[in-house]
Amino acid sequence: MQGADRAVVRAALDADDPLPGTVGFAGALDDGRLVRDVLGRYPIFSEPGDPAAHSPDPTDLSEPTPVPAGHLRDEDGDTRAWTLPDPEPYAESGRAVEAVRAAITDAVDGVDGAPAVAFSGGVDSSVLAARTDGPLFVGGFEDSHDVEAARSAAAALDREVRVVEFTHADIERAVPEIVAATGRSNPMDVGIALPLYLVGERAAAAGYDRLAVGQGADELLGGYAKVANPAEDDRLEADTVRGATREVVGSLPAQLERDVLALRAAGVEPVAPLLDDRVVAAALRLPAELLVDGDERKVALRRAADFLPAEIRRRDKKAVQYGSLVARELDRLARQAGFKRRMDDHVGRYIDSLVE
């Protein structure tokens, strides 16, 4: 069982408790059934109709089929074990912010040892950097937003940051490895996985077998611009801020599967304290105005992280594939290889050519 003891998982099943105080789990129970936590923070796969043939690594199986988040799997198929809670929001903003502060500090301070930290200079990774002792790593192409932001944030925190400067050769080498590890070759997934993979590789080469990441904060705490005006955004079905936030939380299992598999292929195990059950429970109770307020996103997190310098708490963050310039350089390489923008899915075709 990954992430938690079987006894804890069994108790969570008996109590119908989707958030039993873990950072996620997946694996086999004593009776042979497979289980995956409600947010899918760990992946587990099996052969179709044969849960006895299972692995956290899909490359071990001939036809890997993921167990859905919050489900049990046996010979008869998948059954839902838990549903994500939908509690009433906090009535008082001060109480809500204090709950988020207590949750994130307890979760981050409870991380064992000193893992390396994937550090982009935004509020999420700065929470990790400020409260852990492992080295900070940022990855990106020269002059990328993430490298510049990480350097300035590290200086504000009186920390040093190690820069992993990407090259075109890194992309050409890493893309087939990421596709093999994750089973995904679309440009969005590859563009997101590439910076994680290359930073993870460098951390592993420096002797670290774990990498702390800020995954989950954007989904849980209102980090996406689209949740601010969901009724006007055709990417969402929800028409309220809280409903839209819950909708994007539903995307976590697929995202986390990709990220975990990519980082493990790079040689490190991800540590994601902002996905701790305590953080999840506090985030689910946030009122709309503490998720987004005008142009400000992750409002409760910024107020709760009062141990950070104000300049960091105010910062916005680019998506990793853009902040690192990986998306731009993938496009450049595709065009240099003859896959022009006028072609349908030109970057995807370029990725396929690297894999072939």
Rank of each mutant, 00 (worst) to 15 (best):
R36V: 09
R36G: 01
D37Y: 01
V38S: 03
G40T: 05
R41M: 08
R41P: 02
R41W: 07
R41L: 05
P43S: 01
I44E: 00
I44D: 00
I44C: 06
F45N: 04
F45C: 09
F45E: 00
F45D: 01
F45A: 02
E47A: 12
E47W: 01
P48H: 07
G49P: 05
G49Q: 07
D50P: 05
P51A: 02
A52H: 03
A52V: 08
A52E: 09
A53F: 00
H54P: 06
H54I: 00
H54V: 02
S55D: 03
S55A: 08
P56C: 13
P56G: 08
P56T: 12
D57R: 12
P58I: 00
P58F: 05
T59R: 14
T59L: 13
D60A: 13
D60P: 12
L61V: 14
L61Q: 08
L61M: 15
S62N: 11
S62C: 14
S62M: 10
S62F: 07
P64Y: 06
P64R: 11
T65D: 08
T65C: 12
T65L: 12
P66D: 13
P66Y: 07
P66A: 15
P68C: 10
A69P: 14
G70T: 10
G70Q: 07
G70D: 05
G70F: 06
H71E: 11
H71K: 11
L72C: 12
R73D: 00
E75I: 00
E75L: 07
D76K: 13
D76W: 11
D78N: 13
D78Q: 14
D78G: 09
T79C: 04
T79K: 08
R80V: 14
R80M: 11
A81R: 12
A81L: 09
A81V: 06
W82Q: 07
W82P: 08
T83R: 09
T83F: 07
T83N: 14
T83C: 15
